[in-house]
Nucleic acid binder design. Structure first.
Ligand SMILES: [Mn+2]
Ligand SMILES: [Mn+2]
Ligand SMILES: [Zn+2]
Ligand SMILES: [Zn+2]
Lengths: 138, 138
DNA sequence: TCAATAAATGCACTTCCATTGCATAGATAT
DNA sequence: ATATCTATGCAATGGAAGTGCATTTATTGA
């Protein structure tokens, strides 16, 4: 059972107060968050710091960026063993048209997608939009 | 065999010189275009007019907007009988990491995606990234 | 321990694209 | 012909991403 500090260090990320707070914030959230979400949660911190922290996390593969079609980048912690860069590892994302939240469906891998001859698939982004479990009252 | 004028009228779009030009521009292109692409093609026209023309086309379902993950909206003419709003009609899009172009793979429908209980799927966006046929030299 | 070095943070600024308000030109209808 | 509605053009705004640079904080190693 690693501490967060140990985990960050194992990823070659220096531990700072800010980084710990942001990591914990992401870990508590069950949904993908925008930079503004983080900004609102830490009003004392500068936006740039938050931005660069997220980018650092992304580089070191502890968060992945999600384009859910809203036009605003969202971020979520990677699961253990998640290799975001490997196509076959990619899970799909769900965006709720009602509450506007986006969540990782980590259990749901993206099916193999056929592309025409001559095309080479390197990466797939799949976003399902609809009504989430909370909003469907189910 | 409808003329473009007749086609636009059938979609309740008033025919103007600008709209005809933009429609023809889209029809000639084999790839999805950005607003800037259109702007460059019609330097005499104001960006707002081009923007609103595209939005009008979109509302009347003669073009569909494509989010290919580049952060810039792209647009392409709908195929005949394309109902963009119906999930089962949605085709996938391919974005080339080399030439940066995005094309509609209208023949390739998006497979049925399973979502967990309680979730309702209304819409799916699927973008495959990789190397296109022209760039793969095939 | 202390100075030198490197990294993280904060502030200001820029860029890019999407979008809107409002005035005017142009088309349509009575 | 006049009133009315629509399309276009110009100016401005807003949101979000990203960068340059100065300052603070942490790390290194003499
Ligand atoms: Mn995810
Ligand atoms: Mn398409
Ligand atoms: Zn919801
Ligand atoms: Zn290409």
């Amino acid at each position: 059972m690693k501490t967060i500090e140990q985990f960050l260090e194992s990823k070659n990320i220096r531990v700072t107060a800010m980084r710990l707070l942001i990591y914990k914030f992401l870990a508590e959230k069950q949904v993908a968050v925008t930079l503004s979400d983080i900004e609102n949660a830490f009003e004392k911190a500068d936006r740039t710091t938050l931005y660069r922290t997220i980018k650092t996390f992304e580089e070191k593969a502890i968060v992945h960026q999600i384009d859910d079609g809203t036009g605003i980048n969202k971020y979520a912690l990677c699961e253990k063993g998640c290799n975001c860069e490997i196509e076959t590892d990619l899970h799909l994302h769900f965006h709720c048209n009602n509450c506007n939240e986006t969540i990782c469906l980590t259990e749901h891998k993206i099916p193999q997608i056929k592309v025409p001859d001559g095309f080479v698939s390197e990466n797939v982004n799949l976003v399902v939009k609809g009504i989430c479990d909370k909003c469907s009252g189910q």
